[in-house]
Amino acid sequence: MSRARSRIAGVISVLGELLITAGVVLALFVVYSLWWTNVLADRAAARMSDDVRDGWKANNAPQGLDTRDGIGFLHVPAMKNGEVLVKRGTDPKKLNDGIAGYYTEPIASALPWQPRGNFTLAAHRDGHGAKFHNIHKIKEGDPVVFETKDVWYVYKVYKTLPKTSKYNVDVLDPVPKESGKTKPGRYITLTTCTPVFTSDYRYIVWGELVREERVDRERTKPAELR
């Protein structure tokens, strides 16, 4: 073999090794992003959830108090993701802990116990707990339940918007007119990124409060969760 051919073969060999290495690194990054961050987030969320429930048992977290631990738990049977702790704010770094956050800006969220308004929530769709990964499985008529220390708030989904601009903040309005509503009420809005594995657009789900149930001593779940 000539020297030229030998050099070419050497270069090709090095490039091949580099490509293999790059492929391995990329694969590890994907595993980290889509699996390991979920593991870490679920662990963090479990610890925070335990703190909230321990506080409730100790009777030191009255209804409506916005503590550092969280205000309650979101239950969406259609998403099959268990209970989701809800805390203040939608900073991605905080949502990385496997929770959902309620908006404080650009339009401040109402809270469930307030007489009017839109309870607006965000969570990751992929990685970091991916609590809204299955948002596309929610259909009109499905229940969405928010649990606080003293009250179960039961909502019914009435509209979904599979794709809208990430700059569309009108979906967070106290009266979400884009959903078809024209009068003040007690609404809930779930938001997350779409399509899967991107953050190009937003997926929206709207619901309306249908009833409240007081929490009994055994914390019996509403029929929608049984």
Rank of each mutant, 00 (worst) to 15 (best):
T120E: 04
T148Q: 10
Y153K: 06
D142H: 09
Y102N: 06
P115A: 08
E147V: 04
D126W: 09
D126T: 12
L121N: 08
L95Q: 05
T120W: 03
W152Q: 05
Y103G: 07
P162T: 10
T90G: 07
V151S: 04
P106K: 05
I99A: 06
H128T: 07
H128C: 12
W152L: 09
Y158P: 03
P112E: 08
A108G: 12
N168V: 01
K131N: 13
G127M: 00
I135V: 10
Y103Q: 07
Q114G: 04
P92N: 02
Y153F: 15
F132A: 06
P143Q: 11
K139C: 11
I99S: 08
H136V: 13
L111E: 10
V154L: 01
N118D: 07
K149N: 15
P92K: 02
A122H: 03
D126R: 03
V145I: 08
W113E: 13
T148Y: 04
K137N: 15
L111C: 03
H133M: 12
P162G: 09
G101R: 01
Y167G: 15
S165I: 00
W152K: 09
I107N: 07
G98M: 06
G127T: 03
Y153L: 07
L161Q: 12
K139Y: 06
I138N: 07
P162R: 03
K156N: 12
K137I: 02
Y158W: 14
T148S: 15
V145Q: 03
L121V: 04
V144N: 03
K166Q: 14
F119V: 00
A130W: 02
H128I: 06
K149S: 13
K166N: 13
P162I: 10
P162W: 01
K156S: 14
D150A: 12
Y158H: 12
W113M: 11
G101V: 08
V145S: 03
K149Y: 11
E140S: 10
K137M: 12
Y155I: 02
F119R: 04
D97E: 14
R125E: 04
G141S: 10
W152E: 10
N118Q: 08
Y103L: 02
P92F: 04
K93M: 14
G127I: 04
I135R: 06
A108K: 15
H124E: 02
G127W: 01
W152P: 07
N134H: 14
V157L: 01
I135T: 09
A122F: 11
Y153H: 14
I138H: 00
G101Q: 01
D91R: 11
G98P: 01
G127F: 05
P92Y: 09
H128M: 12
V151K: 09
Y155R: 01
K149F: 09
T164Y: 01
G98F: 01
G141Q: 11
N96M: 13
K139I: 08
Y103R: 00
K156A: 11
H133G: 02
W113C: 06
I135E: 01
H133C: 05
D142E: 08
K159T: 09
